Amino acid sequence: MDVKNQILTVDNLSIGYPSITVAKNISFALEKGSLCAIVGINGIGKSTLLRTLGGLQSKKSGEIRVDDHPLESLSPLQLAQKRSVVLTEKTTSKNLTVQELIALGRQPHTNWLGKLTKKDRSRIEKSINTFLLDKLRHKKCHELSDGQFQRVLIARAMAQDTSLILLDEPTTHLDLHHKVQILKLLQELAHEQHKTILFTTHEIDLAIQTCDFMLILDGNQNPFGEPCQLIEAKHFDSLFPSEMVQFDAKTGTYKVKK
């Protein structure tokens, strides 16, 4: 991996809250233009890790570097210009239109009046077109389906035009078709527009098929690598209780044990 091209570097990170450590021994690095999933069982710390990497929550120990800068050294404005975050919390801005919500992504780049320049408007249009939202641009966000609204939130992150995009469960509550649609759009955004995208997910099978890298939070080694490498090392085999499900290395999928 080219060190000069690394956007996010994590070294021996421990995460959690003042009275409890949720996960520790987390180390990995991501280059520009890569799509990476964080997977693991419920409660293992996936969302906590994402919030910590985004600077929304303090780390316990270890190091996080964004674009070769220590995370804690970045001001809120500098951080907003380097990373964008889409969390699962309900937004209070659903009365905005699709176009208005996406335009908010340009806020870190505007002056104190919030005036949009030609460049800002171009970024907004590009995000709307990339995520197939042109026909929905004047709709209120509360009128959208879950899948449509998820696309709007990711489009807002794209409009923010940061090197690093962090997404918490972007495919949750979606049917299979829309899960695949979102992941393919993220893959395109990473590979064609050279964004580094890190997201949490329960869709391990789909992540194996679409991601360049995966981080498995297992409460122990927390292995990181290409999906094929993780499969070969049998890291998926012990992720869930073996009496319930079994990982099939040939297909890269979990199967219910009969």
Rank of each mutant, 00 (worst) to 15 (best):
K118F: 07
D248P: 01
L116N: 13
L239N: 07
T21A: 03
K139P: 00
G252C: 05
F240P: 00
H173K: 02
A103K: 09
A159R: 05
K118W: 09
G40A: 09
K140C: 05
L198R: 01
H177M: 00
E100M: 09
T210V: 15
T117V: 00
G62M: 13
L185Y: 04
I64K: 02
E72C: 02
S27N: 03
E188F: 01
K119D: 15
A103S: 15
L50N: 08
N25G: 07
I204Y: 09
D218F: 08
S163D: 15
W112D: 12
Q229D: 13
I182A: 06
G219P: 03
E31F: 01
T171A: 11
I124S: 05
Q107A: 15
K24R: 14
V245H: 09
Q6W: 04
I102T: 11
R156V: 01
E125P: 00
L116R: 13
V256C: 10
L113F: 15
K119W: 12
I165G: 01
P18A: 04
V152I: 06
K4W: 10
H138G: 03
G55C: 10
L167E: 08
H177A: 06
T130M: 06
G54M: 06
A159P: 03
G40V: 06
V3G: 00
L56W: 12
L71V: 05
E232F: 05
L13Q: 02
I165H: 02
H69I: 02
F224I: 11
L79S: 04
T97P: 12
F199Y: 14
A249D: 11
Q148K: 00
P223N: 05
L56C: 09
I165N: 02
G55F: 05
V39F: 10
H109G: 11
D218E: 08
K139R: 14
M214T: 01
T88K: 10
L53D: 10
F213K: 13
I165R: 04
I204D: 04
S19E: 11
T210N: 13
D175T: 03
A23E: 10
T201Q: 01
S14M: 04
L77T: 03
S122A: 13
K94D: 12
N95G: 08
N95F: 05
L87P: 01
L174N: 03
K195V: 05
L133I: 02
K118T: 13
Q246V: 11
D168C: 03
K32N: 13
I128C: 08
H109F: 15
I102C: 10
C228G: 06
W112G: 04
G219D: 06
L189F: 11
F199P: 05
